[in-house]
């Protein structure tokens, strides 16, 4: 309980069933691939402190069930999320086609300002690819999403996905676009940040904890 951080963000991992959401989360937190995981029913959690642009940020990640049938249930997890990983499987067009629905849900139920990064997972299975990088990046641009292709198996771009999303949120906070004080922003100040706020002399070095990740 003695962990210190400047900010706490609530993150979601959403996308169709079997796209590797839980594996991405596991790779991010444990730094290894989990090939024997159960499918998620309801919700799983993970949290990790990362450092982004001289701030330490605690990510509180809610990993959701992907099957369409669970959508009415998973919606209740969306509330107050600051960021989201929207995951599809590059070897399955069906999972890509479902993205629009997921996007609508996230913007409607979490918040209009939610920062979303699109993740084309299973990058390691390039031979079975059904969705090209170009196509997906165009979709991302049109919908104002960040975009990366990831591999939960090899770990490629997994950390980057979470970090980029967090960085964008931080930028938005600094530019005033996002107000952490607003209810349901999905952002909280850590103790260290509160101290900084009260004495804005930017004695940053001592407050930023290296989290060793």
């Amino acid at each position: 309980m003695s962990e210190t951080y400047d900010f706490l963000f609530k993150f979601l991992v959403i996308g169709n069933a079997g796209t590797g959401k839980s594996c991405l989360l596991h790779q991010f937190i444990e730094k290894r691939f989990k090939d024997d995981s159960n499918h998620t029913i309801g919700v799983e959690f993970g949290s990790k402190i990362i450092s982004v642009v001289n701030k330490s940020v605690k990510l509180q990640i809610w990993d959701t069930a992907g099957q369409e049938r669970f959508r009415s249930v998973t919606r209740s997890y969306y509330r107050g999320a600051a960021g989201a990983l929207l995951v599809y499987d590059i070897t399955s067009r069906e999972t890509y086609n479902a993205l629009t629905n997921w996007l609508t849900d996230a913007r409607m139920l979490a918040s209009q300002n939610i920062v979303i990064i699109l993740c084309g997972n299973k990058k390691d299975l390039d031979a079975d690819r059904e969705v090209t990088f170009l196509e997906a990046s165009r979709f991302a641009q049109e919908n104002e999403l960040m975009f990366l292709e990831t591999s939960a198996l090899t770990g490629e771009n997994v950390e980057e996905a979470f970090v980029q999303c967090a960085r964008k949120i931080l930028n938005k906070i600094e530019s005033g676009e996002l107000d952490p004080e607003r209810m349901g922003s999905g952002i909280q100040y850590g103790d260290a940040a509160l101290r900084q706020l009260r004495s804005p002399r930017r004695a940053q070095a001592e407050s930023v904890q290296e989290c060793g990740c």
């Binding site: 029913i41 309801g42 919700v43 069930a65 669970f70 249930v73 209740s76 997890y77």
Partner: peptide, 9 residues
Amino acid sequence: ILYMTEWFM
């Protein structure tokens, strides 16, 4: 629904 879904289902 946040905690009982998996338990019950």
